[in-house]
Design a binder for these strands. Structure first.
Length: 490
RNA sequence: CGGGGCGUAGCGCAGCCCGGUAGCGCAUCUGCUUUGGGAGCAGAGGGUCGCAGGUUCAAAUCCUGUCGCCCCGACCA
């Protein structure tokens, strides 16, 4: 058992923080609610980013970059949007410091004519720009993504899950027709689902948000929802059909092939460093982080073992060919031949850091033509011959990838229930947690009441319902078209 | 914004009640022995005790203020 990691059973929240600390993913910064993403965490983010970026480009998108600062007036142009973000905007009021007895002070003479907002999201400045880019239907669609940081002044923060500044991507697309914009919204949700499941090995439910959970300024918000090990849901990504709301607010029109001037249709979609929190809470255990091989910065770590200089030379030369074979096969391999840590220490450390496979090689293995192989996911250890590792190891990494997904899927299915009455609903939430499907009459009043009484929210109205069919609302008894997905959430 | 906790060596903490040479563990450096699941011994370096006032011969310790961070709840990706 790894030292310094609180068990999940004892305190899940503390366990989560311990994992981040011990796996060196991130640390708190001197600024409240902000974090330093350490090399281990950032390498993970880079792999996620690269894969998503590839998927965005395969679906026809281009990257661009828009400013960090947004004129205050832009925020006020779309009423719903303003209302949604007004409470959490950082505002820049001055441009200069002056020396003072206290060190430095804000120079009162440097007050800005128009205050600037640090972007909480970029719809406004992007749609202000799109107005210049779009005249004709021939200018459409515009399929843009940007990788950026954004700031939302949160009351309460948690590393990765909710920080005041976070990294994300935001896609912003402009289309000639409603159908096309809606298709784009759904297409990108599918991209997120594929990424979450195939790369993060994190099963997700796709669906549409209710009005109260909808993105400010959207007509519809689609989401991927994942279920964490402690039975709480995590919104892992969102995709919004924005209708013509921003086009109207920023007067973005085009002349269509029929000669008429029309407003442009829009979508936006994003995932953030929050995904790292979801990854942690999907796979990791009391021994530390567990990373899916497809995203792990290091897929295989090789730990050599020796007693003296002769053994060291023998073992390291034996390892050299193994390392080359794996590297040639496209495996991300790290050799840790440091002499100031003992093998046992390294074993534990790489386990804590979540490296999917560990190969240990000592004099005996070099002598016998073997390697010792340890899997992080099952923690099984075996001695195998040093043969065909260039095909064996990649295959094993893929097996680990699917084992992790299957385990996460089995856990989600175990923790997914259907409630046929409000009493049963509350009982499931209190005793088991997890996803709970239940009938709801479709009104905001009922939704609010359920939230106030149980702290559970409607995560989504799922596209694929495991409990299809009409029924009666568990609270009011009114008609319900289908069960919707409830959970307590992060 | 409420409730709780904490600021003392790079990290984790004790010391504070009862004022009197600033300590412990880990980490770091040196040397030797070690290396198949978080090594051992010996030695060494490292501090304006969050900040500002006050009381006192004397303040990490008592008093007053102030700043910051974390955790738990009300809003949100």
């Amino acid at each position: 058992m790894a030292k310094n990691i609180t068990t999940q059973e004892k305190d899940y929240s503390q366990w989560y923080l311990d994992i981040i600390k011990e796996a060196k993913l991130a640390q708190h910064s001197p600024v409240r609610g902000c974090m330093v993403i350490r090399p281990n965490g950032f390498a993970l983010w880079e792999n996620m980013r690269d894969e998503l970026d590839r998927m965005f480009k395969e679906t026809g998108h281009e990257n661009a970059y828009f400013p960090l600062f947004i004129p205050k007036s832009f925020l006020s142009k779309e009423a719903q949007h303003v209302e949604g973000f007004a409470k959490e905007c950082a505002v820049i009021t001055h441009s200069r410091l002056i020396n003072s007895e206290n060190g430095v002070d804000v120079d009162p003479t440097s007050k800005l004519e128009e205050e600037l907002i640090v972007r909480p999201t970029s719809e406004t400045i992007i749609w202000d720009t799109y107005r210049d880019w779009i005249q004709s239907y021939r200018d459409l669609p515009i399929l843009i993504n940007q990788w950026a940081n954004v700031v939302r002044w949160e009351m309460r923060t948690r590393l990765f899950l909710r920080t005041m500044e976070f990294l994300w991507q935001e896609g912003h697309t402009a289309h000639a027709t409603q159908v096309e914009a809606e298709e784009e919204t759904r297409k990108m949700l599918e991209v997120y689902k594929t990424f979450a499941q195939d790369f993060m090995a994190m099963p997700v439910v796709t669906g549409v948000k209710t009005a109260s959970e909808r993105f400010a300024g959207a007509i519809d918000t689609y989401c991927i929802e994942a279920l964490m090990q402690d039975g709480k849901a995590l919104q892992a990504g969102t995709s919004h059909f924005l209708g013509q709301n921003f086009a109207k607010a920023f007067n973005v029109t085009f002349q269509d092939s029929d000669g008429q001037v029309k407003y442009v249709w829009a979508s936006s979609w994003g995932v953030s460093t929050r995904l790292i929190g979801g990854l942690i809470m999907t796979h990791s255990d009391d021994h530390g982080l567990v990373l899916p091989p497809r995203l792990a910065p290091t897929q295989v770590v090789i730990v050599p073992i020796w007693k003296n200089e002769i053994e060291r030379t023998t073992v390291l030369s034996y390892i050299a060919s193994i390392r080359k074979e794996l590297t040639d096969a496209g495996v991300r391999v790290k050799l840790d031949d440091r002499d100031n840590f003992k093998p046992g220490w390294k074993f534990t450390q790489y386990e804590v850091e979540g490296v999917p496979l560990r190969i240990a090689v000592g004099p005996r293995d070099a002598q016998n033509g073997n390697i010792e192989l340890a899997r992080r996911d099952t923690r099984e250890k075996s001695i195998i011959p040093n043969e065909n590792l260039g095909t064996f190891i990649p295959n094993l990494l893929e097996e680990i990838q699917s084992t992790l997904f299957n385990a996460a899927l089995a856990r989600r299915e175990r923790d997914t229930h259907a409630a046929n009455s409000y009493e049963e609903f509350k009982q499931i939430l209190d005793e088991k947690g997890g996803f709970v499907y239940a009938h709801w009459d479709g009104t905001e009043e009922t939704e609010t009441r359920i939230k106030e009484e149980t702290k559970a929210t409607i995560r989504c109205i799922p596209f694929e319902n495991p409990y299809p069919g009409k029924g009666k609302c568990m609270v009011t008894g009114n008609d319900s078209d289908q069960m919707v997905l409830f959970a307590r959430s992060y």
